[in-house]
């Protein structure tokens, strides 16, 4: 997997993930993702649009960091997962604890009312 950082408007930190988020892919980005998403208070937009597959180990990383960010007073949203990735997230109820959005307006709304 690969990870790229993008500063978005309104002080939102974009983390773009790409590739297959199975145990091998997740191990490749986990440390860097945690450094970015958990070590300081922030509004994090995790761009999943180039994630082709997600397994439970990938969900673990998202949940772990969303929880840590919430404890710091920040928040996280999941942006533009493809249909299959979104189906996996919804099957585990992730959409009820981390907002899934498909446009920036919805992301801004989610950050405004965490």
């Amino acid at each position: 997997m690969e990870l790229a950082v993008k500063d978005l408007d309104s002080g939102v930190l974009g983390i773009n993930l790409s590739g297959r988020m199975d145990i091998i892919g997740t191990q490749q980005i986990d440390l860097k993702f945690t450094m970015l998403a958990s070590t300081r208070k922030a509004q994090i937009l995790v761009d999943l649009s180039n994630v082709t597959f997600i397994a439970s180990i990938g969900i673990r990383t998202l949940v772990s960091n969303a929880k840590a960010q919430k404890l710091r007073g920040g928040s996280m949203v999941l942006y533009k997962p493809n249909n299959q990735v979104e189906e996996v997230l919804r099957a585990t109820g992730i959409d009820t604890i981390i907002p899934i959005v498909h446009d920036f307006d919805a992301a801004r709304g989610a950050f405004a009312s965490p």
Binding site: A55, S56, I57, R60, V63, I97, I98
Partner: peptide
């Protein structure tokens, strides 16, 4: 029911 209450892992068999 909430992010605070959510377990970090344990979702594989559910999937």
């Amino acid at each position: 029911s909430s992010l605070a209450d959510a377990a970090v892992g344990g979702r594989g068999i559910r999937l």
